[in-house]
Design a protein around this nucleic acid. Structure first.
Length: 431
RNA sequence: UCCUCAGUAGCUCAGCGGUAGAGCAUCCGGCUGUUAACCGGAGGGUCGUAGGUUCGAAUCCUACCUGAGGAGCCA
């Protein structure tokens, strides 16, 4: 008999099928067993009637504890009483591996315990839904950028020095070359790739050794970074806007069930449409100060500030032209007033904070060299980067989008760590 | 690095100076439509660690360890 995945039940109503999976939960009476079975594609209820199966099948159901692996045969039926709308009327049931004492019971658990058992927690309905949404986000991101004519050119994970010379990096011994560092951004290499391919993106893991201990930070996270040649700040941010709208639309279309499992208010996501509002840094400062923030002009926003700004809108907001002094050395100054840089962040609604950061890159070799000296960076390490301005320099811009932050926002959950199968945080590297 | 809170059964917690408790999980029994099923019974403990106060400490004090939340930091 052919194995049918639970997600495909709709096309097999009335047929006898084989299901291979695990026992998620069980309820039973003297003559009936209700097995909630999951097979990776979904969850379904299997009903075993003592009178309707061979005795060994009934005993198998009786003996199985939570998360036992099993194979069953039965007829697919539509039934409103069953979770998911379909159930299987079991004709045969066999345990592959009987297990008891699965640590994660259907009752409440604390985060520490769940994180300690992350390898098992992944099987729960909620975690399953979140990671399925993450997959949709990644797929939609790639599809959108590919359709816009960008070429995927991945950048290295081992790097010789700080990309921006500011944040803390993880160092690893690298043969006789001394210390290599895990990348914190593919951007500088992206600029080289953009000069070769015109429009590129990289998509991979990035690493930050900051001792951040908040619900918005991981030490290892995934970031997609598009970079466009012959482009200005507005061009890059328009691409980001299209990307975000496209990703949200895709999740709404293809992950309805998962959003329902997470009890996500989809009305909030349906509002995500172009155009996004643009807010100048100066106006953003005025806005948060009027709401009682102590943040002064010339500083970056705190977590609370971002929430206050985002709450003023029902869709993501673009905050642009941060002072050059608080941005990375390679940001192009605004020609109208060089105190400001051609940079922008996109803040997600509902207090989820920054999901995109980007800007226009400095295109003059002389200005860039001056900046490198101002920031006290080793000129030799950036020789290749300056070369990009010596051989056919063009205006170019790009941005980075943090995948986990986007997934957290779309799922409407309160902590970044659930969006990664095995999140790396300040005090946890097991499992 | 700083601030706050918490460590008691496998899990979630109550107990806050005088016999170690509950719900869930596990095991046994009952129930033909359950929805975190329900009902009855059983087993399960170095009260985070070390010291101190006391006739007596899970409970009060000190230090340390571990974790959570937040701040700082952070495309």
């Amino acid at each position: 008999m052919k194995t049918v995945r639970i997600a495909d039940f709709k096309a097999h109503v009335g047929e006898e099928v084989l299901v291979q999976g695990w026992l998620h939960n069980k309820r039973s009476s003297g003559k009936l067993q209700f097995l909630i079975v999951r097979d990776g594609s979904g969850f379904a209820q299997a009903v075993v009637a003592k009178a309707g199966v061979p005795p060994e099948a009934w005993e198998a159901g009786d003996a199985m504890g939570q998360e036992s692996s099993l194979e069953l045969t039965g007829k697919v039926k539509e039934d409103k009483r069953a979770p998911g709308g379909f159930e299987v009327e079991v004709t045969g049931l066999k345990a592959i591996h009987v297990t008891h004492d699965f640590p994660i019971t259907p009752k409440e658990h604390g985060t520490a315990f769940l994180m300690e058992n992350r390898h098992l927690w992944l099987r729960s309905q909620r975690q399953h839904a979140i990671l399925r949404i993450r997959h949709a986000v990644v797929k939609a991101t790639r599809d959108f950028l590919d359709d816009q004519g960008l070429t995927l050119v991945d950048t290295p994970i081992f790097t010789p020095a700080a990309c921006e010379g500011t944040t803390t990096l993880f160092g690893v011994p690298y043969f006789d070359e001394g210390t290599a560092y895990l990348t914190q951004s593919g951007q500088l290499y992206n600029e080289a790739n953009a000069a070769a391919h015109g429009k590129v993106y990289c998509f991979g893991p990035t690493f930050r050794a900051e001792k951040s201990k908040t619900r918005r930070h991981l030490t290892e996270f995934w970031m997609v970074e598009p970079e466009l040649a012959f482009a200005h700040l507005e061009d890059a941010l328009k691409l980001a806007e299209g990307l975000i709208c496209s990703v949200v639309r895709r999740v709404l279309e293809t992950r309805k069930e998962e959003l329902k499992t997470l009890e996500r208010d989809v009305a909030q996501l349906e509002k995500i449409q172009s155009p996004f509002p643009w807010l100048h840094y100066d106006d953003a400062i005025k806005l948060i100060q009027s709401k009682g923030s102590q943040t002064q002009w010339g500083s970056d926003f705190g977590g609370t500030d971002e929430t206050v700004i985002a709450q003023a809108y029902d869709r993501p907001v673009v905050v642009h032209r941060f002072p050059s002094a608080i941005k990375a050395f390679y940001m192009e100054p605004d020609p109208d007033n060089p105190v400001y840089s051609l940079s922008a962040d996109i803040l997600a609604p509902e207090g989820y904070g920054e999901i995109v950061g980007g800007g226009e890159r400095m295109s003059s070799a002389e200005s860039l060299l001056a900046r490198i000296h101002e920031h006290d960076l080793p000129e030799e390490a950036f020789r290749w980067y300056i070369d990009l301005r010596r051989f056919g320099s063009v205006p170019h811009a790009g941005f980075g989008m943090g995948i986990e932050r986007v997934v957290t926002w779309i799922c409407g959950i309160d902590h970044l760590r659930e969006t990664s199968a095995f999140p790396r945080t300040l005090y946890r590297i097991y499992p």
